[in-house]
Design a protein around this nucleic acid. Sequence first.
DNA 1: ATGAACGTTTGACTTATGTCAATAGAATAA
DNA 2: TTATTCTATTGACATAAGTCAAACGTTCAT
Lengths: 240, 240
Amino acid sequence: MKDILYDLKISCNRCNLGDICMPRGLSKEGVNTLSGVVKQKSILHQDELIYRQGDDFKGIFAIQAGMVKLVTDDLTGDEHILSILLPGELLGFDGLNDKHSCSAIALNTVSCCELPKVRIDELCSQVPNLTRELFRHSSDILNESQARVISTKLSGEKKMAVFLLDLSNRLKQRGFSESEFRLPLTRNEIGNHLGLAIETVSRLLKQLQQKKVVTIQQKQVQILDIAELRRIAAHDKSLH
Amino acid sequence: MKDILYDLKISCNRCNLGDICMPRGLSKEGVNTLSGVVKQKSILHQDELIYRQGDDFKGIFAIQAGMVKLVTDDLTGDEHILSILLPGELLGFDGLNDKHSCSAIALNTVSCCELPKVRIDELCSQVPNLTRELFRHSSDILNESQARVISTKLSGEKKMAVFLLDLSNRLKQRGFSESEFRLPLTRNEIGNHLGLAIETVSRLLKQLQQKKVVTIQQKQVQILDIAELRRIAAHDKSLH
DNA sequence: ATGAACGTTTGACTTATGTCAATAGAATAA
DNA sequence: TTATTCTATTGACATAAGTCAAACGTTCAT
């Protein structure tokens, strides 16, 4: 099965993530120093946790393969899926103020590596640009969260279009197909993430299929007409 | 008028913000070093900008008096009010990845001081805990943004209750009245911030007044029954 | 294979909130 | 003051999305 991964020992400078994971601004020596402290994690299976809401900050993780959801339980016990993370993306920034505010849960088989908390402080003084890099990333994530706040104002159809396009873009950026991918979420999870009822998700996807914009069978997504999907996502206030 | 402020020269260790602004974990020397580089800003009047969306990162600002809104223009040109900032709070973290992603606009007369960008890097190496402090704050802001994502799923009434309670809590934390304050926002701005039509805002406020939970005349807010307001905000899924 | 459990789709109906339009009230300037 | 403009309220109505309920498909374990 595609989903089975092997416990490869990879150092940062030869990592298959290339410069996606810790990008811009790090010198070769910087990367080498980093490489020395990054810990190769063992593989996680579906529904296993990388960290749990309320845990002490563990560190920053980079996904090498698989997808992860970030989930918070609110005061009334309801779950909220705050984000979906793709291979090549970093997580853990929700814990920078001591406690993780989300749980990170594997959506399928996941392989990731870890920059442990204890190392971050020392590392930052050794590798000057790393601090800045982490700040940048932190800020990127904030921007994403703010983009999500904005997209909650959109109609259901637009939300769905924005969601699919966002995934498509991020996958493309990381060298995957932008038009065909497996989305390892139930309708329930999609609805939770987008703030829509499960039935609405079902109807919206049906609608997009009838318009020949996407195909979605079970969890396999195919974007047939990305231009039209963009038009749907962008088309201003008007409802149709 | 209450709103007029004088251009006080305040150093960080004698600042009226106490340890609210740069709190936990900074040694006395740390604060002194900080004090040397923090720049006292001149006063801003309503609608004036502290920084503009797209500007190069300017630095971190601390509000000494007055309120500020953070606003983004999306691709279609619509404005979104992402947050309301109170005296004693910090802003600028949306620019940590080089460009500010929001504009910071004074809602009334504002006095603030600035930790300029150029100083942040050098400072972080001199004051070791400052880096960590900034990370913490960055992460706090991310958590707030995520809380906002979650609250967008609530009914209008709950959103309004959560909004008012949040302001009340934050004001209390900073030594202001938790039950009576001036909210320098138009109904339009409240609606924009909460993702509600202006008419809905008007109706919700009327409803809360009829229930004797709050009083709101023009921009003056009084919370009459904070327990009930909390009940409204928390009371799970059920609509009434 | 067969059934049980779970996830998805579809239809009928309800409702919260948006939209449109008219009026009323504040704030500002002459 | 009065006029003008901006902001807020109120009512009537439309509609997107939620809820309830039933049927249908998949998946998984026995």
